[in-house]
């Protein structure tokens, strides 16, 4: 038995190249999650395109990415080969966790992908359109229970923003937080809550099967392949996207930053990356340089305001 085990292991070990790493990518999440998948897809594309010889991915999960972010900012300062994957969830988590390390302590490089937030109801619900939902919220905000991901995350922020935009008190939003994965979906399918709010990919197969009814998506434009209006089309002037980005270490020189940005841009436009986006159903929202910095600053400011409005942050 041990021989079999060893044989399998040794063959695995020998097949690995042993030269030094070019980039190291820190995924501040457990293996399997969105940030981990982004990091590992980058790893594959970097090596496949020959942009980087050998790329290592390490996982430092916890607390909406803030644990990984803190470790990255402290340990990799000045290292021009270190990258970290992150996203919008981090912005909220930094604020609610009162994280000592923020995105200002790293060097954001570029936004890579974005995902719309979807608002759904179970097929049996009496809510047919977003207007019905708005009417219910205006009638009694607390009576509408929302199921979504962790408190202070993108889902919660979007629910708060919808309430604020239609003119009801965001602190009255009855948001029920579930740990990721299937728990929120189970509560929605089981009719335990009024509406569900989460990334469109979490719901896509249920919408397709007719188990869930899509009321709206939060993106600027309709999501290809999904039959549902945007919030703006439905009369709520609001667009939110759960984006993912890549950042470099603090304390690098402008030349080093430019070199990393060039590499990331080459990655984002490469055939391997584009193919991977397609198979994973991610939407390419590449943005770098000053435009990205401006968007990041605007998102952080808006998030801080809404988290204060909801009452999660002082």
């Amino acid at each position: 038995m041990n021989k079999l085990l060893l044989a399998a292991l040794v063959s695995g070990a020998l097949s690995m190249p042993a030269f030094a790493a070019d980039y190291t990518i820190l995924a501040p999440a457990a293996p399997g999650g969105g940030w981990d998948q982004t990091a590992r897809t980058m790893q594959e594309a970097f090596t496949a395109e020959g942009i980087s010889g050998n790329v290592q991915v390490t996982n430092v999960p916890g607390a909406g990415g803030t644990i990984g972010l803190a470790q990255f900012a402290n340990q990799d300062a000045g290292n021009p080969n270190a990258l970290i994957v992150g996203g919008y969830v981090m912005v909220g988590a930094i604020l609610t966790n009162m994280s000592p390390v923020t995105l200002a302590d790293v060097t954001p490089i570029a936004r890579l992908t974005g995902e719309a937030v979807a608002i759904v109801v179970p097929a049996a619900s009496d809510i047919q359109t977003l207007d019905d939902l708005v009417a219910k919220l205006k009638e009694n905000t607390g009576a509408v229970s929302w199921a979504g991901g962790s408190a202070g995350g993108v889902d919660h922020i979007t629910a708060g923003l919808i309430a604020k935009t239609i003119g009801v008190d965001p602190t009255q939003v009855n948001y029920i937080a579930y740990s990721g994965g299937g728990e929120a979906l189970a509560a929605i399918l089981g009719g335990q809550v009024t509406v569900g709010i989460s990334g469109i990919s979490e719901f896509a197969s249920q919408i397709e099967a007719g188990e869930l009814r899509l009321l709206a998506v939060s993106s600027e434009e309709r999501v290809p392949g999904v039959d549902g209006p945007t919030l703006k089309e439905s009369g709520i002037d609001l667009a939110v996207e759960n984006w993912r980005m890549v950042a470099a270490a603090p304390g690098i020189t402008p030349e080093q930053k430019a070199a990393i940005t060039a590499d990331v841009k080459a990655l984002a436009t490469s055939a391997s990356w584009q193919t991977a986006l397609e198979t994973k159903g991610w939407v390419d929202t590449y943005l770098d340089g000053e435009a990205f910095d401006a968007q990041l600053a605007a998102d952080i400011a808006a998030t801080e305001t809404i988290l204060k409005d909801i009452g999660l942050v002082q």
Partner: peptide
């Protein structure tokens, strides 16, 4: 360490001994 870190890709800290023997 060799079985788990090399064979099964578990991330375990490596030091001079591991680096010397492997590379």
């Amino acid at each position: 360490w060799f079985i788990f870190a090399r064979g099964l890709q578990l991330s375990l800290p490596q030091g001079p001994v591991e680096r010397f023997i492997v590379t």
